[in-house]
Computed example of a mutant assay.
Amino acid sequence: MYDRILVPTDGSTGSAHIAMQAIDLAEQYDATVHVVYVVDEDVGSLLQSMKITEPELREYGQRAVEKVERMVQAHGVDVAAEVLEGDPATTILDYADEIDADLVVAGTHGRSGIERRLIGSVAERLVRRASCPVMTVRLPETNVTVEDEDHATELAEEELANRGIDATVTGIEQQQHVWVAEATTDDGSLLVYVDPETQRTSVVTEANP
């Protein structure tokens, strides 16, 4: 049913929850996940007020797609990533047509500031204008099954053990409704994302600063 699944990202931690939905579908249908971040061409005044340069925003976008890319790769799913420029909704729609996407999986809102503008405010336009189905994902507010740090830590440790990774969880916190555990190994550090609703976990090698 699905061969190419497009996931716009804003780089927020909540994007992990959205990516997990796309990964589930990609695993079921042996699909490729395409990750895209759009640098808004019309944020000049906003950038100036926040003292952010366009190269910095593009660099942020590159880190954003790489974060999701590593999550997808950790599950053995094919992935492609792009950082584009333009009007966010139009650019995402054009890219969906360019790759002949079978499905777009998008968050209904991002975090505050530029990221919210890039993703949250365009979801409705994607639904109205996309030539393929659009699956909108809200960060979980109900049906939460992982409510505390101890449970989230236990799930993270179980996932590491199941993968045969000798690592120690050194910290955990909830960021935008996704539990993020930090773990260390002899070779470096890892992040373990735990979805508080589905208990789905994803292990990602933490990029060097």
Rank of each mutant, 00 (worst) to 15 (best):
D94A: 10
E206R: 15
E59W: 11
E159Q: 13
L155R: 06
V79K: 02
D78S: 11
V203F: 08
Q21G: 04
H75N: 12
K67Q: 12
A22T: 05
E141M: 12
T32W: 05
L46P: 08
E141T: 14
I18G: 03
T198G: 04
G164I: 09
H151R: 10
G171D: 07
P196V: 05
I172T: 02
G76C: 08
T53V: 10
T53M: 13
A152I: 04
I165V: 14
A161Q: 07
T153K: 14
E141S: 14
V38A: 03
R63Y: 13
V35S: 04
A156T: 06
D148F: 08
V180W: 07
P140F: 04
T13Q: 11
A181P: 13
V33S: 01
T90P: 09
M71Y: 05
Q62M: 13
S15W: 08
I114K: 01
C132T: 15
E147R: 09
T185Q: 01
R117G: 11
A167S: 14
T90C: 08
H34N: 07
T145F: 09
H34F: 11
G171M: 00
V72P: 06
T153M: 07
E197S: 09
D10N: 09
Q176D: 15
M71D: 01
Q174D: 10
A74Q: 08
E41V: 09
L190G: 02
I119S: 00
G188V: 04
G76V: 03
I92K: 02
T170E: 11
A161C: 02
V122F: 07
A167P: 00
D3Q: 15
A81W: 05
E69F: 14
L126H: 01
A183Q: 09
I18K: 02
G188K: 04
E85M: 08
T184S: 13
E149Q: 13
Q175C: 05
L126P: 05
G61N: 05
Y2K: 04
L190E: 02
P209L: 08
E41T: 09
Q176L: 13
G164D: 02
R163D: 00
E141R: 15
I92L: 13
I119C: 10
Y29L: 01
D10A: 07
Q48H: 14
S189F: 03
D24C: 10
V178S: 00
L47S: 11
I92D: 00
D3K: 15
L25C: 05
E197L: 07
L25E: 01
G11R: 06
D42H: 15
L160D: 00
E115S: 15
T168N: 13
T136S: 05
D40L: 00
L126T: 05
R63E: 11
G107Y: 03
L46H: 13
H17W: 10
R58V: 14
Y193F: 14
S121R: 11
E206N: 12
T184K: 13
W179E: 06
Q73I: 15
A123T: 12
I92Y: 02
R116V: 10
